[in-house]
Every structure is written in structure tokens, then in C-alpha cells.
Amino acid sequence: MTIRQLSVFLENKTGHLNDILSVLAHNKINIVALTVADSSDYGILRAIVSNPEKALEVLRAEQFMVRVHDILSLEMDAAPGSMSKILNLFTAADICIEYVYAFSFGSKSILILRTDNLDKSIDIIKANHLKSITEKDLIYQRNLSEL
């Protein structure tokens, strides 16, 4: 139901995002999904990667400020209106969405979301039998062989 997401603090400097990416590349860590939230002075890079423990260790060694957070991950139907349908359930329960991003992995459509109430969100997911995604579902190798 939850997977681990890396959050990296990034000052707005030219080439800084690429500094992080090259550390990950050098250590053969695959990026499954990535998004950057930005303000005028800094941003937060959020990424789902193939090996969160190793990514944390190598980024810290390179003096990046990084943490790992648990984040909700759901599978959506690949059909119009499926994301709206899911989000409606949260709105009806008065849960606020802090941020959301979506991506495809193989044949799956995946929704990542952070709400202001994790426990209540999990109750909703269970009650409505929403399909959740685990880290196992996102293993790169298996995906490669399917291609």
C-alpha cells in the first residue's frame, strides 16, 4: 500500500539536479519515477528508485540532504475518469491531497499520492478495495524481460 520515496533538498543552482542524477547513475540505481516541486529558492526532488537504501547511502556520502518517506501507491485502471474516481473517495472523506503524480510502468498505470491523513487514507483504500502497488511490483528486471 505504501512504497518508499526519496526526498532530496535542492537549492536552485544550475546543474544541481544533474549532480544528483549522476550520483544515482554512477551507482547503477534506476529511477522509476521522478518529480520536482519548486519554489523560488529551492526545490524538493521526489523519486522512486530501484534501491532506496543504497540511494540514501550514496547521496548522503556526497553531502546531499536526503530522506526517505513512505508514500501511498495505487494502481489505476487505464481508462478515462479512473483517477478522478479515486480522488473523489478522498474528497468525500474530507482528506486533503498534498501532492500527487502518476506514471506508467509496463502495462500498469500508477498513482502516487500524499494526503494530510495517512491512517484515514489507508482505511479508505481498504474499504473500497483499491488496488495497491508494492515495491515488488516495480522491479526493473522483470519489466525488462516483459518488453
Binding site: I44, R46, R67
Partner: peptide, 15 residues
């Protein structure tokens, strides 16, 4: 300098 334990995944909390 930000303290690592205070790093969150949302801009709002840093702000």
C-alpha cells in the same frame, strides 16, 4: 542550513 531531520517531502512545510 537546513537540518536533515527537518527535511520533509513538501515545499509547504519547508516554507
Amino acid at each position: 542550513e537546513l537540518d536533515e531531520t527537518k527535511l520533509t517531502d513538501t515545499i509547504r512545510e519547508l516554507q
